[in-house]
Design a protein around this nucleic acid. Structure first.
Lengths: 348, 348
DNA sequence: GCCGTCCTGTTTAACGCTAAAGTGGCGCGC
DNA sequence: GCGCGCCACTTTAGCGTTAAACAGGACGGC
């Protein structure tokens, strides 16, 4: 495990350290092909690996990207949802392919963020799993290259010159797809379930799309209600229980949840209350996580390309890092409706 | 985002850089309380954050730990199972609490490992999700502080002086618990489903415990069979389908899977084949992942303390890093049987 | 009163790397 | 044959930090 340094390689080849550095970094205009070849050889033979610490120190870029997540002291639900896990995997792979590394870090406040970034000289950060409100509390420095996954971060859209970008699914289209699917099945008592109290842009977009589809189908404005729940299975179960009465009263015939975990919980809550899904109520999810195929009934859902999301996040971030002002500040992945067993024709 | 350095703090206070360094690193025996206080003050005022790069370079310890996972180029299933996700969360939190950071990295071969470690001067690594065979291919240097989660790594137990440690659940006890539960319900046609072809120590232990419990219950040696499957939902579904015939023939009445995802798949495969769980067959999982409560029927399972596993991994690793030779090289978290709906009395 | 210690610092020399400036030899134009 | 530019390197300096050696004054013992 002894570090092989540039000096070792230089000595082995009989050139200066700087020449080796030039070869290693591909500045071949400064080195003759013959020398370059000898250096390459020695690098391979000795197993030289450049020290990121030394490079960071002098070059002011680390090749390290932080994935910042809402961090509780006990680490429970650091990567809360299957969606986040999928994005993380794709993000890591994409960064790996572009010669960058990923640091995983739970953060609680603005100090945590600043500390991580400064301590390691992070080139940039990806933030995932934060509500817009939590994000505002993080008070991201405008100079910090940051990509927000499924969040807005208030100022981002406004000022415009902050080095921040956003990645999400095409939420409006997703909402519209959901609405079209459900109204197409004859549903007229619609509920959007999710973190609607959070003033989240993502949820607002989905709701807007959902409502637009309802309007397209000729439904009155009051046909779409909302029900607040955080994106967890347990809150879904609770919400499902509460919704049961409305279903029985005939006010609600279909529920569109903002995530599959939530939808699965709602199905459970409804079922526990004695209702049948989809015979009595339809439930539609979002994400197409593995879970959607694993629960009973299998969830109909709005699928989004989570792997694409991770890749996009990597791309946008590296664009920001490179200081490419022409790079897009926002991108979304496509969505598609996957009809399975949890949705069916409206009862009656 | 300009870096505030030791020099800036030193100038502000009117002392040497070294004095500030001593205060920041808690070497208070070299500094008068009065000076220390002034330094602390300036550190807070200026928002000084030490540079990990510089510290790593000179001090030969980075405070960075790598979490190495089997890495495919596309990043799919980097954190394959809910179990791994839970461990990761707890690991990150534990490291955070001990002033360390976590680097997430998918690796394919020995070069990837060496490269990551050298490049960043990782203090140590945690390896998770590897089969024992894959681990052997990684060819971990004995001098590298490493903790293996749910794996053995061959040489680890043997040589003994390698700086490697292992964390797992109490697998033998888990197997025994599973066996006792199932035989207690009158089952006599038992199958252990999981990666049994992989020569994995973990699986072997669970099987041994399972068999021991069967023997305790007076069952003949042939009562426990094994069925190979990797730990995924889809392989579970396929296996469930194959097992259906044996169930109908009365040869199999209960299946013990090495993970909840696998168990859930098996339930699905069995159900799709027209069998009822648990009326016709019982299925028992392992882990007590969220999924166990989310599928129908809810899975009975052997719960293990995944958060404890993450914390233990952090502890063992930091012990190894500190060079504490007395530190334990192996630890396991407790298991407990959670009876839910997927297991019931043997049919007939 | 003198020497050894302790206390509280400071100075020096790296760590591995890169940007920028320097060097020396050789070919070429005229 | 002289200057110029260019090629293929080398030298110098410094990034922010720490280990180790050094310094000087107060204080105590005898």
């Amino acid at each position: 495990m002894e570090q092989v340094t540039l000096k070792d390689v230089a000595r082995a080849v009989g050139v200066s350290v700087m020449t080796v550095s030039n070869v290693v970094n591909g500045r071949l205009d400064r080195v003759s092909p013959a020398t370059a070849a000898r250096v390459e050889r020695a690098v391979a033979d000795l197993g030289y690996v450049p020290s990121a610490a030394a490079r960071t120190l002098v070059a002011r870029r680390s090749g390290l990207v932080g994935l910042l997540l809402p961090g509780r002291p006990d680490g429970v639900s650091l990567l809360g949802s299957p969606h986040d896990v999928a994005v993380t995997g794709a993000l890591e792979a994409a960064l790996r392919g572009r010669d960058h590394h990923l640091m995983l870090r739970g953060v609680g406040d603005a100090r945590d963020v600043r500390d991580s970034v400064r301590r390691w000289g992070l080139d940039g950060v990806v933030l995932m799993g934060f509500t817009d409100a939590a994000l505002a509390g993080l008070d991201l420095p405008p100079t910090l290259a940051a990509v927000l996954v499924d969040a807005d971060g208030g100022a981002v859209g406004a000022g415009g010159r902050a080095r921040h970008a956003r990645v999400r699914s095409d939420d409006r289209a997703g909402g519209r797809l959901a609405g079209a699917h459900l109204t197409g099945l004859g549903h007229a008592g619609l509920v959007l379930a999710g973190p609607v109290d959070g003033a989240s842009r993502v949820v607002a977009e989905r709701l807007a799309g959902f409502r637009a589809a309802a309007a397209d189908a000729g439904l009155p404005a009051g046909a779409v209600r909302t029900a607040h729940a955080r994106t967890t299975y347990d809150e879904g179960v609770a919400l499902g229980g509460r919704l049961a009465a409305d279903v029985r009263a005939g006010d609600v015939t279909a529920v569109f949840a903002t995530a599959d975990v939530l939808a699965a919980g709602i199905v459970r809550g409804l079922t526990d209350a004695g209702l049948r899904v989809p015979a009595d109520v339809s439930v539609l999810g979002y994400d197409d996580a593995d879970l959607a195929r694993q629960v009973t009934p299998r969830l109909s859902t709005v699928a989004q390309d989570t792997a694409g999301k991770g890749r996009l996040a990597a791309e946008l971030l590296l664009g920001l890092v490179a200081g490419d002002d022409a790079a897009p500040r926002s991108a979304s992945v496509p969505v598609a409706l996957v009809a399975r067993e949890s949705t069916g024709p409206a009862p009656g």
